[in-house]
Every structure is written in structure tokens, then in C-alpha cells.
């Protein structure tokens, strides 16, 4: 993409990110129940991160190798959470007990 479309592309993305950041803060003032509030916040955070990763870092023009190098840490993050939580958190044990 040549420089003109790139520049207004950046401004458009920038404004979307600003709106989302403010909306994430706005969500907390709605005093939703705990789980929905946290899920909404992290959903917004994931979308913003995805935008930055895919747009600002123009991930689209990267090779297949870079996709692999970037996917692995997120998989590890998932592994860390999934196998961390049941060990130390008491509330999750009764949740897990239903499966075993």
C-alpha cells in the first residue's frame, strides 16, 4: 500500500483504538456482574491487541515463519493458565470435579 493510503489507514486505526480504549474504561462504570465485566474488558483488549499486531505491525506482509513464531507464545500462555489455575485455586477444583 503506498504512503497516502497508509497514512490515513493509520489515522483510522488510531481512532478506532482510542475509541475502544475509552469504551473499555466506560464498561467498568456500568457495574455489570463480575464475570461479564471482566470478559467484556478482556474481549476489547484482545481485539485491540489483534488490531495492533495485524495492522500496525503489518503482519499481513510477513512470511509463514513469523506466524509460527508468534502463535507459539500465545499457545504457551494458554497452557500456563489452563494448567496453573486448577492446581492452586480452590474454587476451580469443585468446578473440575464434575469432569473427573
Amino acid at each position: 500500500m503506498n504512503s497516502t493510503t497508509a497514512s490515513n489507514n493509520h489515522t483510522m486505526i488510531f481512532s478506532v483504538l482510542v475509541v475502544m480504549a475509552l469504551s473499555a474504561v466506560g464498561v467498568t462504570f456500568l457495574h455489570l456482574p463480575i464475570v461479564t465485566n471482566n470478559v467484556a474488558i478482556f474481549a476489547i483488549a484482545f481485539v485491540m491487541a489483534g488490531l495492533v499486531f495485524f495492522q500496525y505491525m503489518d503482519l499481513k506482509s510477513e512470511g509463514k515463519l513469523i506466524y509460527w513464531i508468534m502463535i507459539i507464545p500465545f499457545i504457551l500462555f494458554g497452557i500456563l493458565l489452563v494448567l496453573f489455575i486448577p492446581d492452586v485455586c480452590h474454587f476451580s477444583i469443585n468446578f473440575l470435579r464434575r469432569f473427573f
Partner: peptide, 18 residues
């Protein structure tokens, strides 16, 4: 190798389910 680590912790209070 990323999903085996707790075999070092069987006796250190690991949740038996794990």
C-alpha cells in the same frame, strides 16, 4: 516438553487431579 513439568511436583502439594 511444555506440558510435562508437574511431574517434578507430584509430592509438593499438587492437586491430585493434575
Amino acid at each position: 516438553s511444555f506440558i510435562v513439568w508437574a511431574h517434578h511436583m507430584f509430592l509438593s502439594g499438587l492437586n491430585p487431579i493434575l
